[in-house]
């Protein structure tokens, strides 16, 4: 693992992170490092610890042991500064239904201490792939894909070094999913590190540079998905740890 404070420091560095909930071990010494422009997919069944990992990175949870660094900052002790390095798009992007996509973007940017003019916000929504006619429409009528594009626009506005995606393509139609994959690759090409928790084996081959298979709270395998077909990835994702085997 690279030095967490040096010039080549990884955008995200997790070392030996452990987290228990009600006595149940969710993360068991998780190690993960992610550099600029890298897209990393966390693959694993429900309950494997993907969302817990994201919560640790955002500072919503504190690791029982180990350390988490975002841009060299500890989100447990400096959550605001650490979150300034990361943008997060949850599985279900919810917006204020009475506000338009444009107004939602400007509001969320305000929370991040950004002042976006209407034209700047419009440009960011264009960049995120939201059709121009939808910019001014109330978000109540947006599809999941449209809401995610607003989330992407927030991340673009923030120029975050790390993009966290939680099940980003679930529920998207194939066209929207392909759009989304392109948007993620575009962000990575601009130097943004991307960590996504996903079940979408097909899309992650298009998007991810590395796939970490999360089992029993730790990365059991780390592979380059481009060399594997979907069937091989599925076998990996479904494989159980030895202690869980029947």
């Amino acid at each position: 693992m690279r030095d967490a404070t040096g010039p080549d420091a990884p955008v995200l560095a997790i070392r030996g992170a452990t987290k228990r909930f009600a006595g149940r071990l969710i993360l068991d010494g998780l190690d993960l490092a992610l550099g600029a422009g890298e897209v990393y997919a966390l693959l694993g069944p429900n309950g494997a610890g993907k969302t817990t990992t994201i919560n640790l990175i955002l500072g919503f949870l504190r690791a029982d042991a180990g350390e988490v660094r975002v841009g060299g900052l500890d989100p447990a002790t400096a959550p605001v500064a650490a979150r300034a390095q990361a943008a997060y798009i949850p599985e279900q992007v919810a917006l204020y239904p009475g506000l338009s996509g444009l107004e939602n973007l400007r509001y969320l940017a305000t929370l991040a201490a950004l002042r976006l003019s209407r034209s700047e916000a419009g440009r960011l929504l264009d960049e995120a792939g939201l059709a121009g006619e939808a910019h001014g429409r109330p978000a109540a009528g947006y599809s999941k894909g449209m809401r995610q594009k607003v989330g992407i626009a927030v991340a673009l506005a923030r120029r975050a070094r790390l993009l966290l995606l939680d099940e980003p393509t679930s529920g998207l139609d194939p066209g929207a999913s392909a759009d989304f994959a392109r948007t993620v690759r575009a962000a990575a090409s601009r130097g943004t590190a991307v960590l996504m928790a996903t079940h979408d084996l097909y899309r992650l081959r298009e998007m991810a540079d590395r796939v970490g298979v999360l089992r029993a709270g730790r990365i059991a395998e780390e592979i380059d998905p481009r060399g594997l077909d979907a069937a091989a990835l599925e076998r990996l994702a479904l494989a159980r740890p030895a202690e869980e085997a029947p």
Binding site: P79, P90, A94, Y96, L108, G151
Partner: peptide, 16 residues
């Protein structure tokens, strides 16, 4: 915001 899920997005912004 918590009920609709928007709180996650708000909380992820760099603001206390």
């Amino acid at each position: 915001e918590q009920d609709s899920g928007l709180l996650r997005l708000i909380a992820a912004q760099p603001v206390a």
